[in-house]
Lab assay of single mutants.
Amino acid sequence: GTEDLKEEAKKALKKGDKERAKRALKKAGLSEDQIKKFIKEVL
C-alpha cells in the first residue's frame, strides 16, 4: 500500500538512493511537488 511505499522511500533515502525513493513515491501516487517535499522532509 501507500504507507509501505513511503517506508520504502524513506529507507532508500537514508541509503542515499534518491532514484529508488522517487520510483516508490510515484507508485504511491504522489505528484512531483509532493515527492520533492517528501524528500526534503526526510533528508
Rank of each mutant, 00 (worst) to 15 (best):
K15S: 14
G1T: 14
A24R: 02
T2C: 09
A24Y: 14
K22G: 05
D4S: 13
A21T: 02
K36E: 15
T2I: 14
D17T: 01
K15H: 12
D33I: 08
I35N: 01
L5W: 14
G16C: 09
V42H: 11
L5M: 07
S31P: 04
D4Y: 13
F38K: 03
A12R: 03
E3N: 11
E32D: 13
G1D: 13
L5S: 04
K10D: 03
E7A: 11
T2Y: 12
E32M: 07
V42Q: 09
K10G: 03
I35C: 04
L13C: 06
L5Y: 11
A28H: 03
G29N: 04
K14E: 12
E19Q: 08
D17E: 08
K6N: 04
L43W: 09
T2K: 10
S31F: 02
I35P: 00
K26D: 07
L43H: 05
D17L: 07
R23Y: 04
K10I: 14
R20L: 13
K40I: 13
E41F: 06
I35Y: 02
I35R: 01
L5C: 06
K14N: 09
G1R: 13
Q34I: 03
E8I: 12
E41N: 10
L25R: 00
A9R: 01
D33Y: 05
E41A: 12
D33H: 07
A9G: 02
Q34Y: 05
K22E: 14
L43E: 09
T2R: 10
R20D: 08
S31V: 02
A24F: 14
D4R: 13
I39G: 01
K40H: 15
D33L: 07
L13A: 03
K14A: 14
G29A: 02
D17H: 06
A24V: 13
G29H: 02
L25P: 00
E41M: 11
A21F: 03
F38E: 04
E3Q: 11
R20S: 14
E32F: 06
D4G: 11
R20H: 11
K40F: 14
L43A: 07
L5N: 04
K26P: 00
E19T: 08
K10A: 08
L13M: 05
